[in-house]
Each structure stands twice: as structure tokens, then as C-alpha cells.
Design a protein around this nucleic acid. Sequence first.
RNA 1: GCUGGCGUAGCUCAAUCGGUAGAGCAGCUGAUUUGUAAUCAGCAGGUUACGGGUUCGAGUCCCAUCGCCAGCUCCA
Length: 634
Amino acid sequence: MPEDQVEVVVGKAVYRGRKGSTVAELGISPPDEAVAFSLNGHTYDFQQGIRENGRLSWLTFQEEAGRLVFRHSGAHLLAQAVKRLWPEAQLGTGPATEEGFYYDIRLPKPLGESDLQAIEAEMQRIAAEDLPIERVELGRTEALQLFAQRQEPFKVDIIQRIPEGVPISAYRQGEFIDLCAGPHVPRTGRLKAVKLTGVSGAYWRGDEANPMLTRIYGTAYPDAEGLTQYLYRVEEAKRRDHRRLGPALGLYLFREEAPGFTFWLPKGQRLYRTLEEFSRRLQEPRGYQEVATPWIYRVGLWQQSGHWDHYRENMFVIEREDEKLGVKPMNCPGHCLLYQSAVRSYRDLPLRLAEYGPLSRFERSGTLHGLMRVRGLHQDDAHLFVREDQIAEEMRGVLELVDLVYRTFGMPYEVVLSTRPDDYLGSLEIWERAEGALQAVLEAQDKPYQIHPKDGAFYGPKLDFYAVDALGRRWQCATAQLDFQLPLQFDLTYIDRDGQPKRPVMIHRAIFGSIERFLGILVEHYGGDFPLWLAPVQVRVVPITDAQGAYAEAVAGDLRRAGLRVEVDARNQKLAYKVREAEVDKIPVLLVVGRRDVEQGTVSVRIRPDGDIGARPWPAYLAELAERARMPVG
RNA sequence: GCUGGCGUAGCUCAAUCGGUAGAGCAGCUGAUUUGUAAUCAGCAGGUUACGGGUUCGAGUCCCAUCGCCAGCUCCA
């Protein structure tokens, strides 16, 4: 094939043409729903010239890459609308995000709700105009001139940072032109359903020293139905918000007297303890030993561990008697001291130390967020001190625990391996062996995983686990990090088979992560409808009249003796009233007892979400309930 | 911490232009003894986040503080 020719394969057809031809020029007509195409792993739009051979696959809104193209065009639509309304607005950047897009813009005035509506209306107008979106290739000087003349200082800044040799392009739709690498959908009319979702501030290039721009958020869908579903999901997330739901269910509350800390109400504390108990009952049989270590140390310890250099900003520091003391944000240094307290043999390893104690982290006031980001927390933390040859086996054990836990909560999860960053510490050889070990474990388990190159901590590679909740949101919870540094810092050793001292490797791992945060995630995942074994109140017994009071107490007593958490609602109220309240309180099992039940020795069962399932003989039904309420620890 | 917004009874919300702080739910008291999502009546509940200021008069306007929300930033 001549050098100036390209050849692409689409399905079973082969197309040839001059290098740099667009799809149309090659005689390929894209399907209606396609917004772009993928060739050798790169995304292109229909106006970009094809310069390499390969197999072409169409990208639609169904594919992540297609969605990004689509949403990025949404951002341009937004920018064009803003420029029509405020010609003096200066554009920053406007990328697509997971759920939509945003554009950072310097505006002459702060935006209100009505401004958003006006912009949105203008966007819809531009979409209806169905303007063609044209790609324009520019020379560097030409680009600088164009955007300087259009009074877009941020665009000029961007162009100046584009390395020599990289082509500069812009996209034009109607009177609007924006510096952009692309790709884009072919016409504005493709953006059938757009919605602006919020405004906030954001620094230019994310730097506090730079001017603050207005960030306008929005989302776009190819049809109204997708947008409606998205808005429903947003609504549902709001309905499940743990900051509202938790206090409403009497689980916990927050007070401004203690920002970043949680007040656990009796029911919330029960939930919390149940989770902790679940963790203990999984870990004890797996060789974990629970310890408790001090929560305040002299700074010397933090200097030794390296936290003073790397984490001081996030620590609460106390000064007393001319001495500085640091409240612990992590357990690792304490566990290292425990490790040091005895001579360790290679036979003692792996040593698995678990701790659930209180940790304090100074999080900046603006970052606090319900249970998700707090200053006072607890982790289901453990440090595994292992020989290097035990890394793979121990990581396998951690993986098994993670799998067990997330399966129990009905959350699929994704695994990410983060590898050696540029500023790593330790020997290259150990790093490579450790990364190899992690990869081998994942592959041996046939677990799909992603690699984030250079995203590891400077002290070791790590596995992060992202749990996916009922609304499809991803939460980073579990983590397992190899650490070669701390054993060095604390000069930890074990006596090996050959009588020589050797350096152990540490694995920092948590399965829930922060228990506070995990509980918040569970509240939202279940929308407050906890599975029976977790529910703070599992059963509520409801006598219909005073006459069944004693019978109700007897039933409740049976339940309590069987280890269930139970309440009796003996208030003088109509049954419907008490049923409603139990539903609002999201009590999983309601046992109604009336005259007929007393006479026949039954309970009338109402279960969420099924409702009334009729009478069951008592105490025979107790066994079934107790079985269903058992903690799922195998 | 930074930018913007918000803060009225336990909760959800109202209060015209700056002119007597109000309702529902929850709570308490009483009546009602009820078979699967709200029985009726009465009572009580407030330094309008906090501290200043403007004004004859401030929930409302201004300033500062605290907290919360959306982001940014940070995240050994």
C-alpha cells in the first residue's frame, strides 16, 4: 500500500483512501446514533482525518468514551449560551465528567437560579438551531491571535502551555468558537436533553493563587428519557442522603459544638457495634489478634514514623508541659511499637494486629461531610507483619475478606492496583517483586482489575477497592497497602531460619475503611432499609389493645432470649397508626398480636417490603426469625 | 482554609415594602381500646445560629464570628 494511503476496517468492510481523509471522504457512513469512533484506542470525530490503519468501531452514548464526547459537546453548548448572554464572559476549561460536564467561566456577576434557567433556555435554543460543529486546525500564532482578539486570556494561557509540535484545533458552531482538542458530536442538534445542575467556584488551574472562576455544572443526554432517569437518580440520592436519613431514623446526629464528630444515638450505636462485631467474627478465625494502643503519643513517635513530615497538617497536636503530643490519625506507629516489644521469629509471622480504636484527623473545615468525611473516626484497621515470601498469601487472604464482606452487603466492587510513583522510596527490586506479587494474586483469583500507574504511595504499591452501591455510585472503601518503609523507620526485624535478623514487610489494610463512613454508605445503599441481621431494631411487637399487652411482652421476651433486638409498641393508638409508624421507622419485622392471636397462639406478621403475610404459629415462627436474623459469618 | 449560597420551634416550612414571629408533624394532657400506612380535643413549645451596627422600629438591611450546603483545595 502506498505511503499516502490508509486502510480501515469497519465490521467486515474494508475502506481505503488518502491518508488524512475523514470517514465521509473514505465513503463510510456512520450509523445515526454514533457520535464518534474509536481507532486503535483513540477517539476521533467525523471531521478528524484518519492517519493510521486499523479497525474502526463506532462510539455511541452507550460507551463511556462516546458519552464523554457527547458531554464535552454539552460543555461547548453551555459556553456558547453563556457568551450569548454575557459576551464579556471569559472561558476557562469545560471538560466532560462521569455524570455530565462543567465549564469554568469568569463572569461579570455571580449567578442565581434564574440565570441558570436563562442559560439552559439558551442552550436549548442553540440545540434547536442544529448548528454544524466544525473542526478548525490552527497554527500557533493564528490561535494566539484569534483568542487574544476574542479577549479570552485563559485560552491564551492554555495555548501557551501547549508543547510545540502538538496540533492546535478549535471547534466552531455558529458564531461561537472554542479552543478544543475535540472530538465533538457533528451537530448541536444531537444534544436533545440538557440540564444545568449547579454552580460553584473553582480556581483557574485549581490553584488558590489564581482567580476564582464560576463553575457551571450540567448534564446532557441524547433523549429526554435518559435525562429523566438521571434526575430520578439524583432525587433518589437526595432521599437517601445519610445526613438526613440517619437523624430521622434516630441513628446519629451532628452538632455544631463538635464539627466533624458524630453523636451516636442508641440505635446507631447498635448498628455500629453490629458492624464491628461482624468484622471481629470474620477476622478472629482468620488469625487476626485484636489490640488496643494509645491514642496520644509524643511527637517523637510521629517524627520517627514520618507522619510529622508527611501528615502533620492533618493531625491534632496538643502542647503540655513544654512538650508536643500528637493524637493518632493512624494506628501503624503504635502497632510497630507493639511489634518491637518482643524478639520476633520467622515462625511468628505473619503477625496480624487488628484495632478498632479512635482516630483523629484534622480535616479542613470545608471538607467535612456528614459521616463520609469526619475528624473523629474508627477503622476496621489491621497491620500484617509478614515475610516477603508471605506477601502473596496474605494478600490473597485480604482479598478473600474483601470479597466476603462486599458480597454480604450486595455490593459489587472494582479493584485498582496502584504502582510505583516517581518519588518512591526503597529498592526498585523490592518494588517490582511486590507489584508482581500483587498482580499474581489478582490473576490467580481471576479478578478483573485496573492499573493506575504511578499512583501508589511512596512507601509501597497498593490495592484499592471501589464498592458500587444500589444507586451505582462508587465508593473507595477497602484498601491494602504494602509498606517497606515503616519497618525500616522502626528498625523492625525477625530472626530468620538462618539465625540472621531480617526485615518484615507491613501490610496496612482495612475492609470497611472508616466504620463511620462505611455506615453512612450503607445507610444510603439500603436507603435505611437494613437487612434483618443489621437492623438496629429487628422486630416490633404491636398489641392491638391493652388486653394483649401481656401476650406481646411474652412474645418479645422469647425474641430477646433468642438474641433478637425487639421493641414493644403498647401505646394506646389505632393499629393503622402504629403500622404506619413502624413502616416510617423502617422496622423489618412487625408482629401484630390481637385477640385472635392470643386465642390461637399466633402472631400476625408484617414484613418490609412485602407487607402483611398473615398469621404464624408462635413460638414456631421464632426459630425462622432467629435463623433469618443471624449474622452472616459463615 | 478559599469562593458562593443558606441558617426561623425537635422536624418540614410560612411571615407583603423594614411594622404584633405562624402552621403541620413530633411532644405533653385528656378522651377513645382500635386487625395492617396518620382518632379527636386541649396545652405547651422561640434571645429568628451567635455578636455588633443602621433605624422610631430588624427574622428581613449592613459588618464580623460559628455552623451547614455546593464546589475548590488537601488527602501518609
